[in-house]
Design a protein around this nucleic acid. Structure first.
Length: 551
RNA sequence: UGGGGUAUAGCCAAGUCGGUAAGGCAACGGGUUUUGAUCCCGUCAUGCGUAGGUUCGAGUCCUGCUACCCCAGCCA
């Protein structure tokens, strides 16, 4: 039996089946498979977009084809260059290389020409109805709509009017170009849809050059067709638009038109993906920006310390289908741990310090203890950390009155201090208020790590930090960004960030922004890119460690 | 009977010709362990939304139901 390592592009899904079929039928005459990721630059990309990005790029890769990054920027009022830059960064961060970087707005002339063709063909007309009137005559889900009184204008008049629209003779909303299809269609998208509207707004790419802009339903098939896209992957809500997508290309006699295939978008438990919500949090200062480590944006999870490999692995593992689904957060977290566990070094960090005094250890002695950087990956080598008479251990590693099956430190118990000695707890020293001041322990010099001591075994191994040389760091741990209040409304979680000062082994002071570690027993952390300074190290919790121990 | 979709375990998800329900996450149990991590082993659908039908045989084919999602922007 041979072991085969499965990668995303070897997995197969229903989209691949369609493509295989198209290739067999010779639908694309042997041309390369082309996909595209077509965001509108009106916000930052989030983890949901990552699924679409992975899908488009890996599908192209699987077939030896190409994928374009194309900005679907056909609405000047919503788009901004800040977003076009962030989108490129995010796609690059995920590790994908687009074949071409394109703007739909660069096709405005071709799209305009196509609209003229439709008019000449008699399948599009200029309508003077207002937006309200169009809505009123569109009918309802169950009742057909009514033809516009302007539907039967002559081709010449339509041509002249459309040209005047382009030349800026009309105000926003005064006229639109509509496709002549069927006001009685059970598919509302086919009831003479608006395909061009007037907008006297500055466009982020074309500036003031145009004042008529194509609607998505007309623009998108043309963008795909112009670029030679073979498979246009989009989310489920566009299924009803497919007939219009196909209609547009049919009317223009486009040879080998692209095929639209829809898939279910990503939903993650306890995660708000709505751009409206996310933007509101940024605008009202509830978060640090689009890249706040709590945000589900790609910029946010990048700063949070997730790796592109983990995100990609996640997107591959969740699969692609047409059924609406809700993925559990633990799935993503699993992928993050899985990736991090073989690529980061571990460090001793004490979150809730309890001072330990080794009473039988020489007062002024310090030893350098050897610690493995990553037990799974010996090639990552070892490091030395200081050990002396006074140390800190974690609050979770000591119990004055142990519960059953607790085998860390408690009075009378002996444990191994990882990488150092067997230590026995003898006495708990209290403050006046009854809180623990320090615990007095003794060590057994014969049990030094690496000495080969086999005399007796201990059940617990705990980590520690030398008190004299410890460095103080700030650690931020995250809960859900939004939670539901009693009315079921999404509100900011007041406990979405928990800051703690911790004692870390000296080497942590050298951590560079962006560097990741496993903090022994606590999880994976990254030195925050923005908050870490020369004087203060701030670490974000990337993801906690799984623990099977329960009290 | 407006139209378009989707139903396989707590969560994802394979399941091309009908041949006797992959895999992952989570959970639980056990073993190894100088991290209660990792790793390893085991358990977890006589069952595929539901009711019938065809068939030697149905998650796959047929019929009827049911539930959920999407659509009435001059947004994408």
């Amino acid at each position: 039996m041979e072991d085969t390592i499965k990668t995303g592009i070897e997995e197969s899904n229903f989209i691949h089946n369609f493509i295989d079929e198209d290739i067999e039928n010779g639908r694309y005459e042997g041309k390369p498979i082309y996909t595209r990721f077509p965001p509108e630059p009106n916000g930052y990309l989030h983890i949901g977009h990552a699924k679409s990005i992975c899908l488009n790029f890996t599908t192209a890769e699987k077939y030896g084809g190409y994928c374009n990054l194309r900005y679907d920027d056909t609405n000047p009022v919503k788009e901004d260059t800040e977003y076009v830059e962030s989108i490129q960064e995010d796609v690059k961060w995920l590790g994908f290389k687009w074949d071409k970087l394109l703007f739909a707005s660069d096709y405005f002339q071709q799209m305009y020409d196509c609209a003229v063709k439709l008019i000449e063909k008699g399948v599009a007309f200029v309508d003077d109805l207002t937006a309200d009137e169009i809505r009123e005559t569109r009918g309802t889900l169950k009742e057909p709509g009514k033809d516009s009184p302007y539907k039967n204008r002559s081709i010449e008049e339509n041509l002249k009017l459309f040209e005047e629209m382009r030349d800026g003779k009309y105000e926003d909303g005064e006229k639109v170009l509509r496709a002549k299809i069927d006001m009685a269609s059970p598919n509302i998208n086919m009831r003479d849809p608006v395909i061009y509207r007037i907008s006297h707004n500055e466009h982020h790419n074309t500036g003031g050059k145009w004042c008529v802009y194509p609607m998505y339903d007309f623009a998108h098939p043309l963008e795909d067709a112009i670029e030679g896209i073979t498979h246009s992957l989009c989310t489920l809500e566009f299924e009803d638009h497919r007939p219009l997508y196909e209609w547009s290309l049919e009317q223009l006699d486009w040879p080998t038109p692209p095929r639209q295939i829809e898939f279910a978008r990503l939903n993650l438990t306890n995660t708000i993906m709505s751009k409206r919500h996310l933007k509101a949090l940024v605008d009202d200062g509830s978060v640090d920006g689009w890249d706040d480590p709590r945000m589900p944006t790609i910029a946010g999870i990048r700063r949070r310390g997730y790796t592109p490999e983990a995100v990609r692995d996640f997107c591959e593992k969740i699969g692609v289908a047409k059924a609406n689904s809700m993925i559990e957060m633990s799935f993503l977290e699993h992928c993050v741990r899985e990736d991090l566990k073989t690529r980061v070094e571990s460090r001793n960090v004490i979150f809730d310090p309890i001072k330990v005094v080794i009473t039988n250890y020489p007062d002024d002695q310090t030893e350098e203890m050897e610690m493995e950087n990553n037990r799974e990956v010996p090639e990552m080598g070892n490091r030395m950390i200081p050990f002396s008479k006074e140390l800190y251990v974690d609050g979770a590693d000591f119990m004055e009155e142990p519960v059953k099956k607790y085998f860390r430190l408690f009075p009378g118990n002996e444990v191994r201090f990882k990488g150092a000695y067997f230590i026995t707890c003898n006495e708990v020293i209290k403050n006046d208020d009854g809180s623990i001041k320090e615990i007095h322990c003794t060590y057994d010099p014969e049990t030094r790590s690496g000495s080969g001591f086999e005399g007796r075994k201990v059940k617990g191994t705990i980590h520690w930090v030398d008190a004299k040389t410890a460095v103080k760091i700030k650690v931020r741990e995250y809960g859900y960004l939004m939670i539901e209040d009693e009315n079921g409304e999404n509100v900011l979680n007041p406990d979405s960030v928990k800051e703690t000062f911790c004692y870390a082994e000296p080497k942590v002071a050298d951590a560079e922004a962006g560097e990741r570690f496993q903090f022994f027993r606590h999880g994976y952390y990254i030195a925050d890119e923005k908050l870490t300074t020369k004087d203060e190290k701030v670490f974000n919790q990337i993801v906690g460690l799984k623990s099977s121990w329960k009290k």
